[in-house]
Write a protein that binds this DNA or RNA. Structure first.
Lengths: 196, 196, 196, 196
DNA sequence: AATGAATGAGCCTTCATTCAT
DNA sequence: AATGAATGAAGGCTCATTCAT
């Protein structure tokens, strides 16, 4: 019997290495050798497990989205009212894990790559739709459908925008401020509604 | 008899070629040869005028921002009230020239590159601050400073976010919808204020 | 309880896999993994049994020649006259097993490899000499030694040439035509002789 | 004005280098660096002029065939009778330039590669047909069409076969012997005819 | 002013081979 | 007996950059 069961470990290590490499470089212009080196293996092994650089990058993006999905699900389960659902969605997007330089840099880089890779574009579209529907799951309990839709769209845009501005290491200084900004918008929007 | 005065023409042609190349590819991964080819010159000439690829890219970003600045100035001159100033700023960002696939792709690409190039990052920060101050030039006439500041920040984030979502060719379908979304936010925010 | 007696089975399977892989690819540029995969084992096992790729290729060539030798011996045993012996040699070379795309491709590939590998070259020389002597075993009964020698040489060359031309999937359409061509030569040559 | 007109020189040098490299190695397993090195340039330049290794190999094969064609044409122009035409064709194929280790090795290697590359296969088919038609241009003056066709086929096969056997550095020792063998066949074949 | 020529450095990828189990 | 794990070495190819003219 050979040494066995390394595959999942290596895949995980390589994906983690990819995230940190991209995060540090700030772009997808990282070499396979660099990534493999960080994971403590040879670049040949990275190819062995992922076939090609494209696929490693794709797997990495998928991993990031999967983690976000898990966090989101957990947060939504704790929410007890529509309003809390909305806040939960916002909070998760600015949680410590998501709203840090490395992850943000990776997000941006993947957005750019998505212009070329249709597979990646599809993945990001799925994320965008999921974010929208998660927001809607709360907003529809407060606003009429059409307005909820607009509010969801605006909120999502705001979240993405705050990410981008964060990447410049300027503007919004931290997660709390970012959350406050979005919550302020929501409060205004939903408060207005409740008065009507 | 050597041609004289070619320099500005060539520089302009090369910058235009850079924008269109980046826009088409959707990323900065365009070769100097590709750019030079589009401009109808040799890649050696591109180096002759710009020294290095980095510098050509930098000059291109500066050019894009300069154009945006001109548009912005013109739009602001026509605005007759603080509220109109705010709308003017929003409108310019979603004007036909700015809010199209090519330009958006270029923006995104530059944002990513800014992670590596501090010169580029500085440039984008300047743009971000200018956008903020332009928004403020209207908002301070309507809201108290601290709130105006928050509103400006939120509006700017929303604009950037709508750009990113547009890049996915999903979500926001056109400029009008994008403007409506931002204006809706502003209306809510400023309307709320006016009631107080 | 370890399986015993697997070695000969594995060796056979690997050699067969090598032949079919080479035949399909049309060259020796087949990977050990490809071969091992076809044989249903790991590439590590192929190394375990053959030591190195070169040796597997060598063993394969030797196997092909051995089979040809067996066929040849059988065919010659049935031949009842010198003239029949010659025809038998020709017939075997164009038998269904030998004169098909896969086998021919393998032959050609080995000829090329022989330029590099002296072991392989030695093997092919042995085959060439054996073909010559088999032809001679018939021809010496019909022609004087010197002429028989020349005829054998010419016949052998013709056979090899028909192989090569067959590899182009052009020219000689099938085994029957090829045999007819060689037999025509022999008939002319031997017929001429008989008249003298 | 830049240094100019190097392209044809470099292409020629690279093709020559390719032939000699293949000849020496005995196969197409030569690296671009090896070839470029022999031509006294960088491998990057080889790619610059030929795009890819495949294309360089293809150009090389085409060059070899072109040279053969030229030699053939010249030889045929000197032939004064159908019989002389046939001999001329044979002679050219065994001329000093063609029938030497390097060229033969290259031929063989290309035949193998043709199994994979359809472009190369097409090229070799053209050569095969041309050889056939050149032989026919003489043979049809001596034999009835059907027989001429068969004789041409046999002669062509014999020539190719003698090439292959030469590659083993065994059998036919030199060009003169090879020519004698083919001429002997032709003499028998044509002599027989003349008696009828 | 402009360019063809040329290259060095670097990256992705492949593959035979080894080793621990 | 057999294999998953792992790698070093090497090759094709790209590209920014330089230089002589």
């Amino acid at each position: 019997m050979p040494k066995v069961g390394m595959e999942p470990l290596r895949r995980k290590a390589l994906i983690d290495a990819t995230i940190s490499a991209i995060g540090e470089r700030g772009s997808l212009d990282v070499t396979m050798s660099e990534i493999a080196g960080r994971a403590g293996v040879s670049s040949a092994l990275a190819h062995h497990y992922f076939g090609a650089k494209d696929e490693l990058l794709f797997a990495t993006m998928r991993h990031i989205l999967a983690e976000l999905t898990i966090d989101m699900r957990r947060a939504l389960q704790c929410a007890k009212s529509p309003r809390e659902r909305v806040s939960a969605v916002v909070a998760v997007n600015f949680s410590d894990i998501q709203f840090q330089a490395e992850t943000i840099a990776a997000w941006l880089a993947f957005y750019v790559e998505a212009q070329k890779s249709s597979a990646l574009r599809r993945l990001l579209k799925i994320y965008a739709r999921r974010l929208h529907s998660n927001l809607m799951s709360g907003l529809t309990g407060i606003l009429p459908r059409a307005e909820a839709d607009r509010a969801a769209e605006a909120t999502a845009a705001m979240i993405d925008g705050l990410y981008i501005r964060r990447a410049l290491k300027d503007g919004v200084p931290n997660a709390a401020t970012a959350i406050a900004l979005v919550e302020d918008y929501l409060e205004t929007k939903l408060g207005e509604r409740q008065k009507q």
